[in-house]
Design a protein around this nucleic acid. Structure first.
Length: 419
RNA sequence: GUGGGUGUAGCUCAGGUGGUAGAGCGACAGGUUGUGGCCCUGUUGGCCGCGGGUUCAAGUCCCGUCACUCACCCCA
């Protein structure tokens, strides 16, 4: 038997209805902020991610689906969407259309990791980006909008965590201070942390080992205290905008994030309803990405949210309304009746109704049972008696009431009754 | 890559100390010459993940293997 690839998922019809619900909700909500959808290719040159996301990050160094095509190009299934969007922004000269570009996306991403709750190898994110503004109101809008989407969907146990990791310049100075402060304790850290001390010291804060944590708590200077004047001012304004919008948040000065492109604001929103992977979205400011990818340096801020994790929460909360059906079921008995039913259903469909006809030539009882199970609101019954009398039956499944209607004007009468 | 848990009917799961399989739900049908939901009855349905070993005998014990799952690292 063939099985699906590890870390992938079949989304069956019942669940597709849920996906359609949140996709529609998200796009309608984002278009109210005048974000416009962008769709980029599923794969890109490997180099884009190495340069954009950072060659030393875990995502790039060990989680990418990379392959060589027949032209010997190294291609990669996209593991994230900010770099592709930045590439599209540059390549299509979007900055020339408007000084600020606001786009959103919904799509599949690929990372080869061990699957677990809320983490698949092919997974879906929606996200949005504001490219072209360096001001804190852009940061605040991104955070506030995502928070608003979640609460409007019915989630209320959210924790918004924000931090500022400074500009590249101020961070460089902070890292010097940090390295100097931790140097005396280098032997006390775990081996991963000792490696990171040289490669990417900021990610020491990602370590979950208690002892490492303890050393950091006792001896690491806070990044917030080492922001330069502009960074600090920016961060203050982001916070006061969030206050003004009544977005509750916590400052978490250990929130660094595993992708290299972030500057200044970083944030994530977590939910206790998820498992160990409790971040439902993550994002931040990335003022150098566009420039690093060869475009005119352009400040930007954005966020990405995991769709599977969102669905996990919404199902836990039973916050997805059932899909409304307005099904008309044609129950038929006999060859002539089948002919007639075929024509009537075709006409009804052309007028916009949802119509299903029995395909198994089953007993009327079986067809009624089938109609009930499928949630049909109405059943049209056509048997030999009906054909002989030129009158067919229209049954209301919720009241059980049924009436005879003239076969010659059946469609018009069905339409008049149902609407 | 590392560790834990689990693999028995379409689904959720029972199956002390080894004796060649069961329930609930579902599906199908009957109880109503042609009428759903509730109820009753019946039917259908499984090389017990796969391979090997011990044994007169293995779903059950041993070894291996694969899959799924949760967690670690990291991320959404």
């Amino acid at each position: 038997m063939y099985r699906r690839i590890k870390g992938t998922k079949d989304i069956l019809p019942d669940e597709v209805a849920q996906w359609q619900y949140i996709e529609k909700f998200i796009s309608e909500r984002l278009e109210r902020n005048n974000y416009r959808e962008i769709r980029t290719p599923i794969f890109e040159m490997t180099e884009l991610f190495a340069r954009g996301v950072g060659a030393d990050t875990d995502v790039v160094s060990k989680e990418m689906y990379t392959f060589t095509d027949k032209s010997h190009n190294s291609l990669t299934l996209r593991p994230e969407l900010t770099a592709p969007v930045a590439r599209a922004f540059i390549q299509n000269n979007l900055s020339q259309i408007s000084p600020v570009t606001k786009v959103y996306y919904i799509g599949s991403l690929f990372r080869q990791e061990r699957p677990q709750k809320g983490r698949l190898r092919q997974f879906n994110q929606f996200g949005f980006e504001i490219i072209g503004s360096e001001y804190p109101e852009a940061d605040a809008e991104v955070i506030q909008t995502m928070y608003d989407i979640y609460t409007q969907l019915g989630i209320n146990d959210l924790v918004v965590r924000v931090n500022s990791i400074g500009s590249r310049e101020s961070r460089k100075q902070y890292l010097e201070v940090l390295r100097f402060a931790l140097k005396p304790y280098i032997r006390d850290f775990c081996s991963t942390c000792q490696e990171r001390m040289d490669k990417n010291i900021l990610r020491l804060f990602d370590c979950k080992i208690e002892n490492c944590h303890k050393i950091l708590d006792e001896h690491a200077p806070s990044i917030i205290d080492h922001l330069d004047v502009e960074d600090a001012q920016h961060f203050e304004e982001v916070k006061s905008l969030l206050d003004a919008a009544y977005v509750p948040y916590e400052i978490d000065n250990k929130l660094v994030r595993g992708l290299d492109y972030y500057t200044r604001t970083t944030f994530e929103i977590t939910s206790s309803l998820l498992g160990a992977q409790d971040a439902i979205c993550g994002g931040g400011r990335y003022d150098h990405l566009v420039g690093d990818l060869g475009g005119t340096p352009t400040p930007a801020v954005g966020v990405a949210s995991g769709m599977e994790r969102l669905l996990l929460i919404l199902n836990e909360l039973q916050a997805i309304p059932p899909k409304e059906t307005n099904l008309i079921y044609m129950a038929v008995i006999g060859d002539i009746a089948r002919q007639v039913a075929f024509n009537i259903s075709t006409t009804l469909r052309s007028r916009g109704f949802t119509v299903e006809v029995d395909f198994l030539r089953r007993s009327l009882k079986a067809q009624m049972r089938d109609a009930g199970r499928k949630g049909a609101k109405w059943v049209v019954i056509i048997g030999e008696n009906e054909i002989n009398n030129n009158k067919i039956l229209l049954k209301n499944m919720s009241t059980g009431e049924q009436r005879k209607i003239l076969l010659s004007s059946a469609v018009d009468q069905i339409e008049a009754t149902i609407i």
